[in-house]
Design a protein around this nucleic acid. Sequence first.
DNA 1: CTGCAATAGTTCAGCCGTACAACAAAACGC
DNA 2: GCGTTTTGTTGTACGGCTGAACTATTGCAG
Lengths: 405, 405
Amino acid sequence: MPATSTTSPTGRPAPSASRQHTLRERNLRLVAAAVVEATVPPSRADVAAATGLTRATVSTLVDRLVAGGLVAELPPVAAQRAGRPAVPLVPARRTVVGVGLEVNVDYLGVRVLDLAGDVVADRVERGSFHDSDPGHVLGRLREIAHGVVSDVEGAGMRAVGARLALPGLVDSHDGRLEVAPNLGWSSLDPRDLLDLRATDGTPLALEVANEAKLAALAELAGDVPSSFLYVSGDVGVGAAIVVDRQLFLGDRGWNGEIGHVVVDPAGPRCTCGALGCLEQYAGKEAVMRAAHLPDDAPLAELVELLLGHDGGANGAARRAARALGSALADFINLVGVPTVVLGGAFATLEPWLRDDVVATLGERVLAAPFVELDVRAAQAGERAALTGGAREVLRSVVADPAAWV
Amino acid sequence: MPATSTTSPTGRPAPSASRQHTLRERNLRLVAAAVVEATVPPSRADVAAATGLTRATVSTLVDRLVAGGLVAELPPVAAQRAGRPAVPLVPARRTVVGVGLEVNVDYLGVRVLDLAGDVVADRVERGSFHDSDPGHVLGRLREIAHGVVSDVEGAGMRAVGARLALPGLVDSHDGRLEVAPNLGWSSLDPRDLLDLRATDGTPLALEVANEAKLAALAELAGDVPSSFLYVSGDVGVGAAIVVDRQLFLGDRGWNGEIGHVVVDPAGPRCTCGALGCLEQYAGKEAVMRAAHLPDDAPLAELVELLLGHDGGANGAARRAARALGSALADFINLVGVPTVVLGGAFATLEPWLRDDVVATLGERVLAAPFVELDVRAAQAGERAALTGGAREVLRSVVADPAAWV
DNA sequence: CTGCAATAGTTCAGCCGTACAACAAAACGC
DNA sequence: GCGTTTTGTTGTACGGCTGAACTATTGCAG
């Protein structure tokens, strides 16, 4: 909450008067980021060299971060060379944690991560939330979350915020959910129904976002370029734009709606009312139907057929891949980011999608001769939005450590 | 040049150590922006109130900006109320100027603007640069630019930088032109052929960008939302994304290629090799042909026919508008910015395009029920890229006044 | 084993830029 | 004409960073 109260719609900090303590805040952030993003635990001297600050300044800043529980010191280890051994600095474990929450069509989830990226708690409850009652479902999520937060705080950790992932259009200004077709929810503020509190009663800052967008952020934990497009295949097809390791949200966060990009104006009618949307070719129901499976067949069944070289399933995959390639070509031509990460069901199906997607991109992306197009499967695993949400909370702590130390 | 040397690919400043003078730089920018962006000339006290700085601090900063020629004081005018009369502050006129350059298919242009937004110099040379020689054309542009810069500097002004607009794919990292189909140019660095110098021999910082993108920036001079999509119709169809009054450049600046978005996969073959690109419906040649005019007919001729309610011309306009609406719907669904500014020939044709574009957007934009879609004609006038380029130079001065005072 | 070089981290004076408060300047109004 | 009001300036205090000197702890050469 404090971290975002002075940010513009797109998340960029609004310019305001800089005072002495602004220096402190900025340099604290710089040092915290240097420690968190380092691949090998740096010493104070390493941080000084990396940031351009003096060792003296880094020392005082690090001391503050250690006191605040954001950074921890490892026992000094003698290097292979002369000189006093360095004290390696690492993101603190089990001190400050972020909470990821999700309501999706077939499960509720809560996942808690610490600054080291460790999963501290993970709870999933399966169910069927098609056309469900928001108050009831969010009430249940609240119970689960409250239990998890109690456990975590009982173990001495501090929950600093939560992100709720929803499969629908979320307004990034006010966190309202405009519509979530597959849940049957519309026009509500989840924070009215899900006020989370720490055990001492203080409210836990909660922000709401689209599921695909938080799932995209989970990829940042792995080896991925700093800018990429993320496309998540599920019942719907959602996408996210990540630039310089940050979500690009457009005007109010309702972007990345690649599921309704035109593939063929003479194509089948979509649930949105238009004709030939991508979802009618690469959405779960369309793919299952094309593979002669029931609409709601599990993904594993399709994979089974594909592994057995079933003609119908392969045809369905190729049709989906061609359509996906066409829509992604538009995406790349418009946004200008040449790396595509396939998430959700597309990650599982990547071996059967990749070639046709790449071929279509090669034909339709105008800049194809000048840049290397890169299509790859997501790495974040199951229910990535939970990880992404929790990570995002922790990122906001690192981005504004002054508020937490 | 100094302003961008430490910026990331997308133009966001790379974080680095903050020192005392960082405060100065940031607050100088804040004050300069407050003066430049104000609608009515503010006093030092007004600026202090707007920025949150104290009057004392604002005074020293303003004095510096005045000394550097970025800000000027108007004679104090007695307000209608008690108190010492304020000294109104305005962007300085005819002191610091930015240079916009452009090579397009049918003209070369140079335009010089000062901080007040006044056009200080404007020179256009018509010609035909289809399949032209880059060295020759840029050499000629260099001559014209050199003459203009000499005049301007002779009048006591200081040219602080230049932007060159080209109708093609420009790499925003290194300023190289990858390809400009209508000029027949490819793979060259315009700065090798166009090194500009002030009269005293010091080189003038030159950056290169796509024509539609600089034209989009020219809109910021008028009454336009802080985020919008800009679509420019010409021989090709180009676009730009402006968010928070800044260009969004994706990974390397080759975005906004809306001309090659899929309108109909069964449509006519495009020069890019793919089928049914927007350019085959809304590009100049396609529209002229559909209106039964020669490919290279002047726009005025089409307008004439449209004003006369010519059936063929109207059909061509509607076909173009439907296709444009379809591609723009994709654009909006993907990027999430609901305001569209029609530029270039589309600005002239806006009366005949708007209704069909708006109708198509209403059908295909997923968020249409929740946000107000806004389609409007560009305001910047002829050869907007020149204005946008010059403005962009001046914006970079205001964004980093410390480098210039 | 001893002393020296090398590296890490700490201490302290100095500097710089902003805040705060008092003050000077220039209007209005009764 | 004098108090009031608002603008802009002056001087002091304070906070945060730098730079240099200093301490701590290692490796290595002799």
